[in-house]
């Protein structure tokens, strides 16, 4: 199936006192209809900026310096604000982390939902209340009358996040970004919200880009995973293959260092030493090299390109020492 969104070589810069800093540096990805892609990375990896760039929402003074983002035969990075506004909320949509700050505190849920419909489809004004109620039912909020009349603070965190998802998918977008959609929620709710997103992707043929710092949490709900580190893609793979064997030392470290319910219980727990670099102070060569267990001299000098891994068909990794990881996995 063709890609709903095709991002190629995206780069985003921010001015700093020491010159321009590339917060996102050459990120590419595709996502198809009905597919869920997880963009996974830690703070400073550029995952959220990547999504904001596609939506035309990079905060000033940041700016997109290169790249293309094709969506419905148009390069989103070339559209003006008016054209983007017509698409946002309608054809492409986003769910943010904190549902309380994303909802207007003084308007009822019903009003906020019908406003979305009226803004994009003025002709649908009379049908708007019924559609709002149907949208709530779709996200599992069955007590529609009460919720439509409620203000955001009267709902629980889980209900608010469902309302936001209802709002985001109300106009049947072809593409949905979900930026840490469950971080503010409890674990049982996290699972149900991710299940809901996945169900909506399948039912509506919607492409979903799930943005998260927590690989373990989202992996189960994503078809493919793309791991970002310091503004670049370090690995991309089908989820099941990634978990069978990670082919980048950073991904491997992430998987090893996430505490798991069935993990070994001996200390020290496996961990990645050091910390992710600031965008303005990235090490030369591979940005991960100071923390890497596989580091060689060349890693300090050359930035590895994301490339197909020899001996592992269909896998892509940006590591000069990837052959050793492949060999180790076979051993």
């Amino acid at each position: 199936m063709g890609a709903v969104l095709s991002v190629h070589d995206l780069a985003i810069e921010f001015p700093t006192p020491r010159g321009f800093v590339r917060a996102v540096d050459g990120v590419s990805f595709d996502v198809a209809a009905g597919e869920t892609l997880a963009l996974v990375g830690e703070s400073g990896s550029g995952k959220t900026l990547t999504a904001l760039a596609v939506l035309g929402l990079v905060p000033a003074p940041g700016r997109v310096v290169t790249g293309r983002a094709f969506f419905q035969q148009r390069n989103l990075l070339r559209l003006d604000e008016g054209e983007l506004r017509a698409l946002r909320g309608r054809a492409l949509s986003i769910v943010f982390q904190d549902p309380l700050s994303a909802l207007h505190p003084l308007l009822t849920i019903g009003r906020q939902l019908t406003e979305v419909i009226e803004a994009h489809e003025p002709a649908a004004k009379r049908a708007a209340p019924a559609r709002a109620a149907a949208a709530l039912a779709e996200v599992g909020l069955l007590d529609a009358d009460r919720i439509l009349a409620a203000y955001p603070h009267e709902l629980s965190g889980g209900m608010r996040q469902r309302v936001l998802i209802a709002m985001a998918v109300l106009l049947r977008p072809a593409l949905l970004f979900a930026d840490e959609p469950t971080t503010a929620l409890d674990s049982a709710l996290q699972r149900s919200v991710l299940e809901l997103l996945r169900a909506l992707a399948h039912k509506n043929g919607m492409a979903v880009v799930l943005i998260s710092h927590d690989l373990e949490r989202v992996a189960e709900f994503a078809d493919r995973v793309q791991v970002l580190y310091a503004g670049r893609t370090v690995e991309s793979a089908r989820t099941d293959e990634l978990f069978r064997r990670a082919l980048h030392p950073y991904t491997r470290g992430l998987l090893a260092s996430s505490p798991r319910l069935d993990g070994a219980l001996s200390f020290p727990l496996p961990s990645i030493p050091g910390q992710p670099p600031d965008a303005g102070a990235r090490p030369a060569g591979c940005a991960f090299h100071p923390r890497c267990a596989f580091v060689q001299e060349g890693c300090r000098l050359r930035v590895p390109e994301l490339a197909e891994v020899r001996g592992a068909s269909g896998r892509r990794s940006a590591c000069l020492e990837v052959a050793r990881l492949v060999a180790e996995a076979h051993a």
Binding site: E42, S43, H213, D214, L215, E216, G253, L254, S257, S258, P259, F267, P268, L269, P270, S271, I272, P273, Q275, P276, R291
Partner: peptide, 15 residues
């Protein structure tokens, strides 16, 4: 904390 830092802090607490 970021996932790659969590285990570091848990190790410190244990130690």
């Amino acid at each position: 904390l970021d996932v790659s830092i969590r285990a570091q802090i848990l190790n410190l607490l244990h130690e």
